[in-house]
Design a protein around this nucleic acid. Sequence first.
DNA 1: TATAGTTGTCTATATCAATAGACAAATTTA
DNA 2: TAAATTTGTCTATTGATATAGACAACTATA
Lengths: 249, 249
Amino acid sequence: MTGRQEADSIERRSGVSLWRQIADRILQSIAIGDFAENAALPPEMALAGRYGVNRHTVRSAISALVQEGVLRAEQGRGTFVLSRKRLSYPIGARTRFSTGLQGQTSERHIVLLASSVEPASQRVAEGLGLARGTEVIRLETRGEADGRPVSRAAGWFDARRFAGIDKAMAETGSVTASLARFGIDDYLRQSTVLSARHADAADLADLDLQPGAIVLVTVAVNVTPDGQPIQFSESRFPAERVELKLSAL
Amino acid sequence: MTGRQEADSIERRSGVSLWRQIADRILQSIAIGDFAENAALPPEMALAGRYGVNRHTVRSAISALVQEGVLRAEQGRGTFVLSRKRLSYPIGARTRFSTGLQGQTSERHIVLLASSVEPASQRVAEGLGLARGTEVIRLETRGEADGRPVSRAAGWFDARRFAGIDKAMAETGSVTASLARFGIDDYLRQSTVLSARHADAADLADLDLQPGAIVLVTVAVNVTPDGQPIQFSESRFPAERVELKLSAL
DNA sequence: TATAGTTGTCTATATCAATAGACAAATTTA
DNA sequence: TAAATTTGTCTATTGATATAGACAACTATA
């Protein structure tokens, strides 16, 4: 019956500043529900003690989170939690953006950021079962829920079969509706591969994140019920706002 | 047909140092297979140009990766890639550690780090369908493949039903084999929730990571075929070494 | 054998990150 | 009202991070 200490400490000389690490911790504990909405954060001196750093270092972390709109500081009173728990984004055989977040948000939609026609790269070609270099349509989209960006995705489609899907997407704001125009009434998720990394500059801009944030990355292939690949996609989710819930595939 | 620039730049004043961000990028591109094993990295000056930083900053990133055993630098010749692509860890209805990595590694096993009996916390109790405070056994384990840590997990079991599972685990090194001693021949994964964050001090130590690394976190419940919860678990995977492949049932 | 290209080491300087202390400003509590 | 608590602002100092330039050491190649 050996014990095991829950590490509450912080890494120095890591290339990640202490204030950023502390901001991550606070964000994490809010996300898992340690603080109710509008609850007060412990005083700066208490946090400084907990993490073994100077009060000013804690203040840097807090001011970053105030900047992000996660916390609100009031002189003389305390610092308070604004944001709620993470959204839980379901992933399964029939993953659809709009239906997935029902009940968690009052409003959600997809914005088409950009589209282009390009030759298929190695991985896109493999995913779609096409020859490398075949023309494909790429759609760059952003998912928003209650006005906040919750995903950023690039989707690739066979350009010959789905010519004009960019227009359909712009008009309908829905992948499912756009595919329906091409006679696809149902589709399934064949495979999903998951990883995580630091957000790059494009992620930061499109997802309205602060530098140093983490994104979850899924790479997926959607197929028709008879197994024909129709869409290859790479989606990025801000880890501080979204968790992925894997349902029966 | 609007274009969209692939951002290759780096964020300043983010709380994450430039050398750490560059090291992450290099790690990422190795992981997705941009470089073959033993391939040469671009020269330091080229990388400095690409990321818009000084050569010395690139050198800091490289020396961190040399320290981690990912790269090997040779004076006069270049810098070379040692490590291979990420392991792909399958997650599905019948997720098992040992069978999951077959074919990708020559050797794999689980080490029992610690065990304890404790009252169930809110989320553990919910997951296992027990009253809060019921005694549960916690097993802390580490998964290793080819001598490298690839996962770190905490598993909780009803202490009354699975008394002695810690000993079974220590002897067999397998959850599946340990459960078999209690008459459980088959079990399924009922739910999995996925998130990502920076590694904390315990993660760094147990997974042999450098500070600033990212971990993928899964929280899962395993059930018997008739739906009875038997195990609640939280696993952490080093994002630089592992990706999660969601497979169908 | 030169020459070009690459990594390794050194010095110097500027900026960011973190610590330390003091006190002001606002709010709550005794 | 007075005291205690908490956030806000200021100055100063130290160490880590990043830039800049020069040159040495080593390798491959023309």
